[in-house]
């Protein structure tokens, strides 16, 4: 089983391609999208995606807007922001909006892996809690 199910969103196609290969080699399930709307569509089509790696600076719908949409529609999905230095402020804004973390481009692959794992773990933890809560509810209902 894959370590985590990841969606990689960046407008730089070569970057996405290489990154995808590298992450797959590290046992991640990787899907890719090159802009905001595509990313949302992918999330809709594949509910198994746990972590989104999202570039902040994209033409059209940028990272922040995409993040807002993701958090609205898929609140449990964790988002890691990727940014060039000029957009550190927006990455921080992203954190405030519920992103899991941010990394500066070009990023160290091991670091990225670390973050992805943490994010996936966090998501799983959340989901487990939700399941537990539900179970509790159901059991208490019976009594």
């Amino acid at each position: 089983m894959a370590v985590a199910n990841v969606l990689l969103v960046d407008d730089e196609i070569p970057f996405v391609e290489t990154m995808t290969k590298r992450l797959k080699k590290r046992d991640l399930e990787v899907m890719s999208a090159h802009n905001g709307p595509d990313a949302l569509k992918a999330l809709e089509d594949h509910p198994g995606i746990e972590v989104v790696i999202l570039d902040v600076k994209m033409p059209g719908m940028d990272g922040i807007d995409t993040l807002k949409e993701i958090k609205k529609s898929f609140p449990l999905t964790e988002v890691i922001m990727l940014t060039g230095h000029a957009t550190v402020e927006s990455a921080i804004d992203g954190m405030k909006l519920g992103a899991f973390d941010y990394l500066m481009k070009p990023c160290d692959n091991d670091q990225l892996m670390e973050k992805v794992k943490e994010a996936a773990a966090k998501k799983q933890q959340h989901e487990n809690k939700i399941i537990e809560a539900r179970m509790k509810e159901i059991t208490s209902r019976r009594i």
Partner: peptide, 24 residues
């Protein structure tokens, strides 16, 4: 400078990624 830096960052990131891929 901000514009240049940002524009350079992306290709550099790709180069580093590609190198990383070869390493992999």
């Amino acid at each position: 400078a901000a514009g240049i830096a940002h524009e350079i960052n992306n290709p550099v990131a790709i180069m580093v990624e590609e190198a990383g891929w070869i390493q992999d």
